[in-house]
């Protein structure tokens, strides 16, 4: 992570939408009077969500004013947490997991796709749609390699499926969230290896265990 600075080109102003403002007020109200600065992370996060996933200077100042903080205090927080983007990240911000499990499962190839299709790291693509960055573990190691695009995870990627995913996003076609190979959640990738007896799933095994006790011979009955 390099030195982080605010973007050179900044919008003129920032204002929370009425819904977000209401939400922010609810967050501030969670804390006792005089401790409203505790809501700073929530407000910054909401400001980032409203502003195409990046924090602009007016947003930082708006939050500082709302919470009665010195602007430097808010800037400290915005520059400390790498999940706050200080520069525009396009419409789709691709966070590529490059930590060991993903690296072992082919994150390097996904990275190459990012470089060829989007461009250099942390730069918005020419069409303004994409930007990408390599991040530390996103906690979906079972489904490596994976990326996070905006709020969603896209897992079990191959260079082909990832290229397709980017193309679909760029074209506005619907995409499948989660695993791209069709598996559900983090179930085994090569199919189930346990509980594979079909009778377990077709209902025929229901009551079999109990029946063993009902078919005991009469002479064994207590008498």
């Amino acid at each position: 992570m390099a030195v982080r600075r605010l973007a050179e080109i900044q919008p003129e102003s920032f204002a929370f939408t009425p819904e977000n403002l209401k939400w922010c007020e609810a967050q501030i109200a969670k804390y006792p009077a005089g401790r409203q600065a505790s809501a700073v992370l929530s407000l910054l996060w909401r400001a980032q969500a409203q502003n195409d996933y990046w924090l602009c200077k007016p947003a930082i100042e708006t939050v500082a004013t709302m919470l009665d903080m010195a602007p430097i205090r808010v800037l400290e927080i915005a520059t400390f947490y790498s999940m706050f983007n200080l520069e525009p990240v396009g419409k789709y911000y691709v966070q590529l997991c490059g930590t060991t499990p993903c690296a072992l499962r082919g994150a390097g190839a996904i990275r190459k796709v990012c470089e060829s299709k989007i461009g250099p790291e942390r730069k918005v693509s020419a069409d303004g749609l994409f930007a990408w960055a390599e991040v530390e573990c996103l906690g979906a190691c079972c489904n490596a390699p994976m990326v996070q695009i905006n709020d969603d995870y896209y897992e079990d990627l191959t260079p082909e499926s990832f290229t397709q995913l980017l193309d679909d996003l760029a074209a506005g076609r619907p995409v499948r969230k989660g695993s791209q190979t069709g598996r559900i959640s983090s179930e085994p990738s090569g199919g189930d290896t346990t509980l594979s007896d079909p009778s377990l799933h077709d209902g025929s095994a229901l009551g079999v265990w109990k029946q063993r006790f009902e078919t005991v011979t009469p002479d064994q009955q207590p008498g």
Binding site: V3, R4, M69, A70, I72, R73, L75, E76, T79, F80
Partner: peptide, 8 residues
């Protein structure tokens, strides 16, 4: 509150 420590 002029000064602060940015980054980490």
């Amino acid at each position: 509150g002029d000064m602060g420590a940015i980054g980490r």
